[in-house]
Design a protein around this nucleic acid. Structure first.
Length: 881
RNA sequence: GGGGUUGUAGCUCAGAUGGUUAGAGUGCCUCGUUGACAUCGAGGAGGUCACAGAUUCGAGUUCUGUCAGCCCCACCA
């Protein structure tokens, strides 16, 4: 047993343990296995991505829940898989092609897709492998991919069904367009950021030469597409001018001045130039007033059909337009103006609103049940505050643009007949036009937004569209664990699709966590290069340390900062467990597993540690139930380090090294029982460490991950309900602390023996102190200990409730120093007593506070008064010396 | 413009349903290598719980307002 290394070296065993778990199929379950179903579907990481700290947090939380439920005896399934991540993956392959001096258009769709699949094969396993190093107990046999056959079938079925119901439609609309990614985007893929820009005031003359109006714009280049100017109907400045015709400068287009209540009278000049083809609001106004849509900016962000400006980049054009307007006397003035500008979520290019033909999902009818689901409690957010955010978004939802002008993704199952012009949407590939029987068809080239397939993830991975046993057993899944950043992108859409196609919410709970930030609180990002690689952390400190660090010091829904020092602290905890276990194993060599102590064999320390253990089993379980994983972990930390290691193990040594065989057997039993139980409690948090240690324990078989999660019932025979044990332990440990404190103040080495005199003032404490005086020797190096009726003359002391403690001094004490010390103590106690007395003098407190609380205060006052008189006496005595 | 969230020890954070003298990690100071662990042990310093009111016998905890920071949503050109 002593072949265990002196320090914790996770690199020595983590990989091997994981391989054994996987080999033994410990992660695998089936629909017909015993137990209540418990299922989590993984938020699928980008198939070609790399593990980052955000994943590490997300997976750790999931794995804790999964391992806990598996140990509880639930039929537990963690569905793993990856996402094809349309734009992101395609962009990477296109970048590679650029390096080769070619592009996707040269390659053609088919060849290009081959390249992407190849890329996926090369990098697709990396992320899964990295998840394994974290200890994630996913059922890898069931690993899925959003573009595998099953998920693709689900996408087609859902798409066609929504189309047939009229919930998917194709239409020409103004949409967000990224000129760099060259695709349409949904509203939530646009990030609005304030930018310092300008407000140009332009003079637009009337056709009849009767003057002009001045409009204000932040985007002068769009004037080329202007087809009207709008004012507010109630604006007295313009009321009489409405209906007149204006001439667009530089272009000489005739256009109307019209009234629309959208216009804000207070802003700018109160007159808005209207560009229906390049601004969402203008687009709406254009529809209302039958304005022409003149497209002057191309998909690439260049000017088109724009006369001399044709071919210019939109920003280059802006400069020239301004110069030309100024030259023509049309520029009235320029103001600085901060405004929100939309940027592409992925590449950060400024979005260009463009009119194009796209596919949309009608959201209103889908959103209503998704709102109802949280209002009825069928779906719960943890923490609850995210409910409001979710509802607010759904209540104001607009139609979802789902078509993307990409190649990597689910190609929309729509076919156009080149002969009759009809469109056919179908689950099966269409080879013959159902309208005219022509075979001259072409398929819709657009693919679906990546989030469309993600929205189906909770049921597509379980077998949908087939009615598999897994789908029946595990849907609705139990909980979804994800960051607050994708509530709109993913969570809400899963809920809508789940309700629509399964009639039930996809998960009963959504456990939301925050973002992992760097030491300065900044978001970890590639551009800042401030990301910490979890793989590096695991290599240095082990997965258990990383997991423990991520789960502690953080509460649900809040961001947390990554600190190397916190990883070290977690590693130190692991090392502490490692060494405590090593110590136990060294003393358990001829352990008799059949020995069971009788109640008489157990002494105070034994009963105390069992009590603590039972209590923590309850509070840890309670916290797990409430998703307070950090609090649960903290409690385990305290139990293991402070209770078990600092106190119990130290106290065990006396009997362990003694000659009483029965006492030795008893203490070994306690040590082994507590350690084994604690390992099981801790296993969901630190799976590797707990597994390897438990395997070394005598009389323990099988993997810890399949062992039962501890319950209080397990300890039923070893614990009692009365609190006399805790009270006695408190008395002893407080005495220990006091002795240590006195020694420290006297400059006595903490490990050097010192004579202690105890004057017991509460008779009922005498027995406890006498019986357990050896604890004082063990923990505080107090020896010899004598009980006296009177305080010794040459000594310094302290007063506790029920006992006074004195340290005998070899030489004379420094009377003045001692008086000062005691006076300071006396002040403190008096202050406390005054506050307590104040409460007790308050009639209202006495009449309104619960009786227990009042009694507590009374007891407190009595104790304080005793302490005060003891201290006063002692001080007086010293003064008289 | 709406909504959310944070403000507790030098730093990072816990403190659910209001009730002893507000805790931990880390950092700092003093002391300690006789064996589980120096990735450790013992002791210590350090907090007007952002501010102001309100409710209550009692508020770090509930409510209102103020200040400061962060985030999300929103079509003011």
């Amino acid at each position: 047993m002593s072949n265990i290394s002196k320090t914790y070296e996770p690199q020595q065993f983590e990989e091997e343990i994981y391989a054994a778990w996987e080999r033994d199929k410990n992660f695998h379950t089936t629909a017909d296995a015993a137990g209540e179903p418990y299922c989590i579907v993984i938020p699928p990481p980008n198939v070609t991505g790399q593990l980052h700290m955000g994943h590490a947090l997300d997976e750790t939380l999931q794995d804790i829940l999964i391992r806990w439920h598996r140990m509880k005896g639930d039929n537990t399934l963690w569905m793993p898989g990856t996402d094809h991540a349309g734009i992101a993956t395609q962009a990477k392959v296109e970048e590679q092609l650029r390096g080769e001096g070619t592009n996707r258009y040269e390659l053609g769709r088919e060849e290009f897709l081959k390249r992407v699949w190849k890329w996926k094969e090369t990098y697709g396993n990396r992320i899964s492998y990295q998840l394994r190093t974290l200890g994630s107990s996913c059922d890898w046999e069931r690993e899925r991919f959003t573009m595998d056959a099953g998920c693709s079938a689900a996408v087609r079925k859902v798409f066609v069904s929504l189309y047939n119901e009229g919930l998917i439609y194709r239409g020409t609309r103004i949409t967000n367009w990224c000129p760099k990614c060259n695709t349409a985007l949904s509203d939530i893929e646009v990030e609005h950021e304030p930018e310092q820009g300008h407000l140009w005031h332009l003079r637009y003359p009337f056709k009849d030469g009767s003057g002009y109006v001045v409009v204000a714009t932040t985007r002068p280049e769009t004037m080329l597409g202007d087809t009207g100017v709008a004012v507010h109907p109630d604006d007295e400045r313009y009321k009489h001018l409405v209906g007149k015709t204006l001439i667009l400068p530089l272009v000489n287009r005739e256009m109307p001045l019209f009234a629309d209540s959208y216009v804000d009278k207070e802003f700018g000049t109160g007159a808005v130039k209207v560009t229906p083809a390049h601004d969402p609001n203008d687009y709406e106004m254009g529809l209302r007033h039958n304005l022409e849509q003149v497209k002057v900016i191309s998909n690439e962000g260049k000017m088109i059909d724009a006369g001399k400006y044709t071919g210019l980049d939109r920003y280059e054009c802006r400069k020239q337009i301004i110069a030309d307007l100024e030259a023509g006397g049309y520029l009235v003035k320029v103001e600085n103006h901060e405004h929100a500008v939309g940027h592409c979520h992925r590449c950060h290019t400024t979005i260009e609103p463009l009119i194009s033909k796209q596919w949309f999902v009608k959201m209103e009818t889908l959103a209503a049940p998704a709102i109802e689901a949280v209002k009825s409690g069928a779906l719960q957010f943890v923490p609850g505050r995210f409910t409001k955010i979710y509802i607010n978004w759904l209540e104001n939802i607009r139609d979802w643009c789902i078509s993307r002008q990409l190649w990597w993704g689910h190609q929309i199952p729509a076919w156009y007949c080149n002969d009759c012009g009809e469109m056919t949407v179908s689950e099966e590939d269409v080879h013959k036009c159902p309208h005219c029987h022509s075979k001259n068809l072409r398929r819709e080239e657009d693919v679906l937004d990546t989030w469309f397939s993600s929205a189906l993830w909770p049921f597509s991975t379980l077998g949908y569209p087939e009615e598999t046993p897994e789908l029946k057993k595990f849907y609705p899944t139990s909980v979804l664990v994800t960051g607050y950043d994708i509530i709109f992108f993913w969570v809400s859409r899963m809920v809508m699709m789940g309700l629509k196609f399964r009639g039930e919410v996809p998960f009963r709970k959504v456990f939301i966590h925050g973002l992992v930030r760097d030491e300065l609180g900044r978001k970890m990002s590639k551009s800042l290069n401030n990301g910490v690689d979890p793989v590096e952390v695991i290599e240095k400190y082990g997965a258990d340390s990383l997991r423990f660090m991520l789960v502690t010091g953080n509460t649900p829904g809040n961001d947390l900062r990554f600190y190397w020092s916190r990883v070290e602290s977690a590693r130190n905890f692991a090392n502490k467990i490692w060494n405590a276990s090593r110590f136990l194993l060294m003393n358990l060599e001829d352990f008799d597993p059949t020995f069971k102590p009788t109640p008489d064999d157990l002494e105070l320390a034994d009963r105390w540690i069992f009590q603590k253990l039972a209590y923590r089993i309850e509070t840890v379980t309670d916290n797990l139930n409430r998703f307070e994983l950090g609090e649960a972990a903290r409690q385990l930390y305290e139990l293991i380090w402070f209770n078990f290691c600092d106190y119990y193990i130290e106290l065990a040594k006396t009997r362990l090294y003694g000659s009483d065989a029965r006492a030795k057997a008893t203490v070994r039993f306690v040590l082994a029982t507590v350690l084994e139980t604690v390992l099981r409690l801790l296993h969901p948090f630190m799976p590797f460490l707990t597994e390897i240690i438990r395997q070394k324990l005598p009389n323990v078989e099988g993997s810890i991950m399949l062992a039962k999660y501890p319950t209080r019932d397990e300890l039923a025979e070893l614990i009692t309900d009365d609190d006399s044990i805790d009270n006695a332990a408190d008395l002893i440990f407080n005495t220990v602390r006091t002795i240590r404190n006195l020694k420290s103040e006297l400059g006595i080495d903490s490990r050097k023996k010192a004579a202690v005199v105890l004057k017991v003032t509460h008779e009922q404490f005498k027995e406890v102190l006498q019986e357990n005086s050896s604890y004082l020797t063990t923990l505080a190096f107090a020896e010899p200990i004598t009980f006296a009726e009177e305080k010794p003359a040459h000594a310094i002391g302290a007063v506790l409730e029920g006992v006074e403690i004195y340290l005998l001094l070899e030489g004379l004490i420094d009377t003045e120093k001692e008086i000062a010390r005691l006076t300071k103590e006396l002040d403190k106690v008096r202050k406390g007593a005054a506050s307590t007395a104040g409460k007790l003098n308050n009639e209202r407190f006495l009449s309104k506070a619960p009786a227990e609380v009042v009694q507590l205060e009374r007891d407190k006052l009595v104790a304080a008064q005793e302490k005060i008189s003891s201290l006063e006496q002692r001080i007086k005595q010293l003064e008289n010396l």
